[in-house]
Amino acid sequence: MVQRQQSVIDQALLDATTAAVTRWGLNGLTLDRVAEEAGMSRATIYRRGVTREQLIEALTAEAAGTYNRAMLPALSAPGTARERLELALQALCAAADDHLYLLAGMFLAHGEVFHQPGPDALVVDVFAEPFERLLRDGAADGTLRDLSPAITASALFNLVAWGYIHLRAAHEWNRDTAAQTILDLVLHGVVS
């Protein structure tokens, strides 16, 4: 009888995976590179029964948890939907900053983690849903335009998250400048 080995992913292995994604991007992530970043032999990582996909899934779950915790105050705060949307967009930037180089590495992988497959696919629901809710609330209370919530939420998430990540990681803008500039453009536009 062959017994399947339980995989062991601890925080040190997640940190090593983050370092490997930061250094080589998600497309360049291999178990050998994770082992190198963790300071262990390849044989050790293979004995743990860990796969590349499990590591990516664990990192994604960690980033999603940070994101979900960041969104809660904006979703439950008093005020208009427009005010809460601004809070949510600020929280998105802060959550992105917590995982900046990991997300930048994932961005270069052409959305391997964050998109559903198919020509009509939008952002994975867990990321777009808070913005859909705020957009619906804003259309109802008159503080936001009545737009397609699903499409607009996907556009908002991508515009703010990836724009912020790019300005922080590639251009090395500071947190406040990147967030304020993007949020001002998203919320107010450039047309007078």
Rank of each mutant, 00 (worst) to 15 (best):
R42S: 15
Q5P: 14
I151K: 04
A58L: 04
Y67V: 01
V190A: 13
V160Q: 11
W24C: 03
V126M: 14
L108I: 02
W173G: 04
E112K: 03
L100Q: 07
H166I: 05
T18M: 07
V34I: 15
A35V: 14
V186Q: 09
H110V: 09
E86D: 13
G111R: 02
F127Q: 04
R136M: 05
H110D: 15
S76T: 15
L185V: 07
R145H: 01
I182G: 02
A179G: 05
A94Y: 00
A38I: 10
Q11L: 06
Q3C: 08
L156K: 03
F114W: 13
I56S: 05
R4V: 11
H188P: 00
I151C: 01
L122W: 02
A63Y: 10
A74D: 08
A109R: 01
R69G: 15
R133D: 00
G189A: 06
L187Y: 00
L185H: 05
M1K: 13
A20H: 06
L29D: 03
S41M: 07
L159I: 09
G105L: 11
V34C: 10
F127M: 13
H188C: 03
L75P: 12
Y46P: 01
R133Q: 09
Q5L: 11
A95K: 02
N174V: 13
Q6A: 13
L159G: 15
V113A: 13
T143V: 04
A104N: 13
V50P: 07
Y101D: 09
L156V: 09
E62N: 10
N174W: 08
N158G: 10
R48V: 08
P119K: 05
A88H: 04
P130C: 06
I165K: 03
A12F: 03
L102N: 03
R82H: 13
A179C: 13
A38N: 06
L102M: 13
G163R: 06
V8K: 02
R48A: 07
E132N: 06
T66Y: 03
L26C: 09
R4P: 04
D137N: 08
H166V: 10
Q5T: 14
D146R: 02
G105E: 00
T17E: 02
T17C: 11
L14P: 09
T177E: 12
A77W: 06
G65T: 05
F114S: 06
V21R: 00
R23N: 01
F114P: 00
M40Y: 01
A140D: 12
E62K: 10
R4M: 10
A170R: 02
L135H: 00
V8Y: 07
I56D: 02
V124F: 05
R33H: 11
L103Q: 12
Q90M: 11
S148F: 00
D184F: 12
A63C: 12
A104W: 14
L59H: 07
S154R: 01
V34H: 09
L87D: 07
L92Y: 02
A77I: 12
M106V: 14
L187E: 01
Y46R: 08
A139E: 01
G118R: 14
A43R: 07
A81D: 08
L144M: 12
N27R: 12
V21W: 00
A19G: 12
E53A: 10
R69H: 11
T66L: 10
L122A: 02
L72H: 09
V190N: 07
A169R: 11
